[in-house]
Nucleic acid binder design. Structure first.
Length: 423
RNA sequence: GGAGAGAUGGCUGAGCGGUCGAAAGCGCCCGCCUCGAAAGCGGGUAGGCGCAUGACGCGCCUCUCGGGUUCGAAUCCCGAUCUCUCCGCCA
């Protein structure tokens, strides 16, 4: 959500932002409602002021005089009630529109769709294989690490079981990423994966993303698609102290995504699935553009450290405007090399929001001078598994189908160096 | 899941339908005192919205939330939510 006063003063910028992000927002309608709202507020408040004054008088009056004053106020009160009801309607529609207004992308974000993404860094060189390459599905089958057919039998399409070293590897990468960030001073948090609508709206997933979220109607709860939701909402409706910022949180959660509208896309293997685990970085910092940029660079570097430590070739892209979320100001993706795809696949996503989420969440802080401001929020993946296992299995495979365990993960697998076929 | 109790400012806790945005205490901040500190004394200490913005400011709303009664509600009525206690169940 943006500051209404800012929208009022920069309508063209907002319209352009919507165009760049390929979003449809009726800015003119919003501005008209804004005017209407303030007009109504003035009228209602004038009536209330009059009423309040009369009310004080009535308390002291007696007899005839009192009866007459009461009769007058009855009318004023009725009129006020009418206006207040209209005001409420106007505010409801204004709020509805306000929730759709996008953040303008940063000036250095390329304009356009996915094809306009800009690769800013590449690390590592994809291996040349001197034997027939297996993709992760074949490797997992050979090594008995993933059971997709039974996942489908029990839970449906895009579900799976991880087993044996597959399961261990899954927990190993998560724990490795977690440990890495805790070492860097992040506060580890295990979070709710079912949240109220407010948390989904507060982080900007609703309205608009309802069809991507699993819903529990009986309790009016939603399964989160990322721990970002639970972590950002953690301090909702709070006023933090400036000297306790920035806050660095690393959350761990299962993530659930309906993947509606992706029928036939990425159907092989465990690339696109309904349930996975993710270690997520969330930063809450001061309302300062420079600080936000620094923090984004920081959490981006953290993610790259993790992928580098795993020895996986990857590249970093700046995501173009049309591929950005409504609230995002700038987004980096890490795409990791997946030999089976013969290309890079998205494994990490790092977003800067300024105060877009904080406004929706009513997440604020008090400056040393006593001023109250909205915080800035940022988030980035640390590791998402099992998708990252695709890269690990495929990049580390050997001619006989065995897979070398990346060195940094070995301590989490009891020192295991190679995962070998079960005869 | 069943039964009961309760939700007031950062916290504790008063509050007759008008004089209550709200007593008192604690905490915190600023002064005085002191070599310094404690104690003591004095003062200050919620958020949102609208108008005005050179500054001081003025008005409206908020006593969990939503609705109702009333000229007027923290106080009365209804509903929701949450918390606590007891029972049952349970990883």
């Amino acid at each position: 959500m943006l500051d209404l006063a800012y929208i009022r003063e920069h309508p063209e910028e907002i319209k352009q932002a919507a165009a760049k992000k390929r979003l449809d927002v009726d800015v003119d309608r919003l501005l008209a409602l804004d005017v209407e709202r303030r007009t109504l507020i003035k009228e209602v408040e004038a009536l209330r002021a009059k009423k309040n004054a009369a009310s004080d008088r009535i308390a002291k009056l007696v007899g005839e005089e009192k009866a007459r004053a009461i009769a007058e106020m009855r009318e004023a009160s009725a009129r006020e009630k009418e206006l207040a009801a209209t005001l409420k309607e106007v505010e409801a529609e204004l709020e509805r529109l306000l929730l759709l207004v996008p953040s303008p992308p940063a000036p250095d974000v390329p304009e356009g769709d996915e094809s306009a993404n800009v690769v800013i860094r590449t690390w590592g060189t994809p291996r040349e294989f001197d034997f027939p390459l297996r993709d992760h599905v074949e490797l997992a089958e050979l090594l008995d690490l993933i059971d997709i057919p039974r996942g489908v039998k029990v839970a449906g399409t895009r579900f799976y079981y991880l087993k044996n070293e597959g399961a261990l590897l899954h927990w190993a990468v998560c724990r490795f990423a977690l440990d890495h960030l805790v070492r860097k001073g992040f506060t580890p948090i295990y979070v709710p994966v079912l949240v109220k609508r407010e948390a989904m709206v507060g982080t900007g997933y609703f309205p608009g993303g309802e069809e991507q979220a699993y819903k529990i109607p009986e309790d009016d709860l939603f399964l989160v698609g990322t721990a970002e939701v639970s972590l950002c909402a953690y301090h909702a409706d709070e006023i933090l102290a400036e000297d306790e910022l920035p806050r660095h949180y690393v959350g761990y959660s299962s993530c659930f995504r309906r993947e509606a509208g992706t029928y036939g896309k990425d159907t092989r293997g465990i690339y696109r699935i309904h349930q996975f685990d993710k270690v997520e970085q969330v930063v809450i910092c001061r309302n300062d553009v420079e600080e936000s940029i620094r923090e984004q660079d920081f959490i981006q570097e953290n993610a790259e450290e993790i992928v580098r430590a795993l020895g996986l070739p990857h590249r970093v892209v700046v995501v173009a405007t049309a591929e950005m979320g409504q609230g995002q100001v700038k987004k980096y993706d890490i795409e990791t090399w997946m030999p089976g795809r013969g290309g890079y696949g998205e494994t990490h996503s790092c977003s800067r929001f300024y105060d877009f989420q904080a406004r929706r969440l009513n997440l604020r802080y008090r400056t040393k001078e006593g001023e109250i401001k909205f915080c800035h929020t940022l988030n980035n993946t640390a590791i998402a598994s099992p998708r990252i296992l695709i890269a690990i299995l495929e990049n580390y495979q050997q001619a006989d189908g065995s897979v070398v365990v990346p060195e940094v993960l070995r301590p989490y697998l009891g020192g295991m160096e190679v995962i070998r076929p079960k005869r």
